[in-house]
Design a binder for these strands. Structure first.
Length: 314
DNA sequence: AGTATTTGACCTAC
DNA sequence: GTAGGTCAAATACT
């Protein structure tokens, strides 16, 4: 029995390694698309990732959750579909009152590992869709703490949660604590990638895609931007991170000339940026530049461009 | 009507 | 025993 458990642990460990390697490969492909086969490669990587997740979910016994926190563990949604449950439901079918209560707090162990804390002056959109499920007044804290879970907790078993709490009124200061990793297949928006890049890669760059062709498969931007307003908000948000904002792509339809310094906007560089935003093609439009874009530059861009008049369709 | 938020109650970890 | 995290009915919103 013990040796079987040891074997299972080894299998899960190996699968986790494979998952990590595939994740690394995905990042590489996203950063450096490999020509004509790039889309196919991205699709294959997504399928491999899905396969790893599926296998790990099947193998994962709940008692290993703490030892392998990166394993996505799906909750038995058949016992809690649709969020609300009528009182009579609790006495029937799979969720008898006692077992329901047993399950209710099965994940209630206070999470210590796998957390990250951010303190910001504003409550920024982190790119994920959260559902508020509680608010609590905390002892000796002047402001209540809000509890959020990933909106895909029940449909995809995503266990990511976050807590938000105002810690100061003037100037406003908020503390956001993230717990768990997103295992849902809703890909991050530009702002999320940007926030991640702040945490993990000092010199990372981002790609702004204004692709309006829904058939063009791009796993990181499946629906972006869904509206022109969304796009404006995404671009606006990036203004908060002026020194790290780079617009870059190696397979762009539109290149900003590299000989210009886009960190100091001039009439000339503005013309390039505006033309890039306004251009259109069948394969989608990309802006590419080796220069970083400063907050000032982004603000001026936003001020000078009428987003409602952009030619691509939504 | 469907979805999201609010909020008091409940339960567990400490 | 208490503080903090979660549930779920009620309520608000779209």
């Amino acid at each position: 029995m013990e040796s079987e458990l040891a074997d299972l642990k080894m299998i899960i460990k190996e699968l986790n390694l494979g998952q990590d390697f595939t994740s690394g490969l995905r990042e590489l492909i996203i950063k450096k698309p490999i020509g004509d086969n790039g889309v196919l490669a991205q699709e294959l990587v997504e399928k491999i990732m899905a396969s790893f997740c599926k296998t790990l979910k099947m193998l994962n016994p709940s008692k290993y959750v703490n030892e392998y926190p990166q394993i996505p563990v799906a909750i038995d949604s058949s016992c809690r579909k649709g969020g609300r449950r009528s009182p009579e439901d609790s006495s029937g079918s799979c969720c008898k009152k006692s077992s329901s209560k047993d399950q209710r707090f099965c994940n209630k162990k206070r999470k210590i590992s796998g957390t990250s804390v951010k303190e910001t002056s504003t409550l920024l959109d982190d790119g994920h869709v959260w559902r508020k499920y509680g608010q609590k007044q905390i002892l000796d804290a002047p402001y209540p703490r809000s509890y959020y879970r990933c909106t895909h907790k029940f449909d995809q078993g995503c266990e990511a949660t976050k807590q938000e709490q105002r810690i100061q009124e003037n100037p406003p200061q908020f503390r956001t604590m993230y717990q768990g990793h997103h295992t849902c297949t809703t890909y991050p928006t530009v702002s999320q990638i940007f926030l991640d890049s702040q945490t993990h890669h000092e010199d990372s760059s981002i790609l702004l895609s204004f692709d309006s062709n829904v058939n063009h498969y791009n796993p990181y931007f499946p629906t972006f931007p869904s509206t022109k307003k969304d796009m404006k908000e995404e671009v606006s948000l990036s203004c908060f991170y002026p020194n790290q904002h780079q617009i870059q792509s190696s397979s762009s339809d539109y290149f900003l000339p590299f000989e210009y310094d886009y960190s100091t906007p001039t009439a000339e560089t503005f013309g390039h940026v505006k033309a890039a935003l306004s251009s259109e093609s069948d394969n989608g439009n990309f802006i590419s530049s080796g220069s970083s874009c400063t907050e000032h530059c982004m603000e001026m861009m936003l001020g000078s461009i009428d987003f409602e008049d952009l030619p691509f369709s939504i």
